[in-house]
Design a protein around this nucleic acid. Structure first.
Ligand SMILES: [Mn+2]
Ligand SMILES: [Mn+2]
Ligand SMILES: [Zn+2]
Ligand SMILES: [Zn+2]
Lengths: 150, 150
DNA sequence: GTTGTAATGAGACTCATTCTCATTCTATCA
DNA sequence: TGATAGAATGAGAATGAGTCTCATTACAAC
């Protein structure tokens, strides 16, 4: 979490986003948000289960799905079969991912401003010709993390 | 398929890649390769089933998995729950994807040389600090395709 | 406090993908 | 040209991440 001075401001913003879609900011949702906001890497469902075992799996999935609809959370497809979740970009600096194809770990990395300008320009070029309307982009680097790389 | 003058050259190269890992280039594998090589967009298993119904689902999955191990085919996670498959980059120009978050369609797009130079430089910067060894990258643009965009 | 509605928990269910194993190919060599 | 051992295949069972159902619980509004 980077763009909020206090945890209360974070929760206020989350609550507002949930209210927009007529959803309450309940204990369980709050627990998921606090976990994701305090994690420096995207978490899988089993990560979440390990760290907050009192949230049942079915509720965790539902919370994540509701929070995603509200724009609070983002789902990431890693290179293994498990989805990962992180706070949406409104809560974080825009960033990209290193995906380890050995262990599935996802590492956040922040690009330079200059690079993002180039990406934005290219995305416009690439999509214009196709009548495609872009809402976001993702640059994933696939490879092996320091751990898996011997 | 872009980098081969004849279909025979394509098959020769595929056969070599399979032989490297002690695999035979059989009828079923050949059918999958011909389909993917002639498609201008990545295909899902049900796409493949529709176009080559004589290949059983379990064999199609296995062929794709074997071909991926040989470096002939690449698996793509789309924004829906279905994996897509395309020829590996040795068989195609390097390119990126537009992912429609309404219908799941995957559209290939080719970046400029200048853009790829920038990407390559950034990937180096981003990964060096982490001890991460990059093997490839993917730039996905998420949005709505021309069809889904009214 | 009462009450109508939203959220939750437990577990059943779905379905893309993987696995098993009996059968069919096929490369090799006598 | 067979015979044969190992590889590939097909049919269907099994797996398991993710979704759905429904009975119960929490809560906002009055
Ligand atoms: Mn970016
Ligand atoms: Mn690229
Ligand atoms: Zn790793
Ligand atoms: Zn679409």
């Amino acid at each position: 979490m980077q763009t909020f001075d206090t945890v209360d401001e974070l929760h206020e913003f989350v609550e507002m986003l949930l209210h927009r879609i007529d959803q309450r900011y309940t204990i369980g949702r709050r627990a998921v948000v606090e976990l994701l906001a305090s994690s420096e890497r995207p978490l899988s469902i089993s990560d979440i289960e390990t760290r907050v075992p009192e949230i049942p799996r079915s509720s965790a999935y539902r919370h994540l799905s509701d929070l995603q609809k509200a724009g609070v959370v983002r789902r990431i497809a890693a290179s293994d079969e498990f989805a990962r979740f992180e706070m949406a970009e409104d809560f974080l600096h825009h960033h990209h991912h290193l995906l380890c194809s050995s262990c599935g770990q996802v590492i956040d990395v922040t690009p330079t401003r200059a690079f993002e300008r180039t990406v934005a320009r290219m995305v416009d070029e690439l999509t214009a010709a196709q009548g495609f309307r872009a809402t976001s982009h993702a640059l994933d680097v696939i490879g092996h993390c320091a751990n898996c790389e011997r």
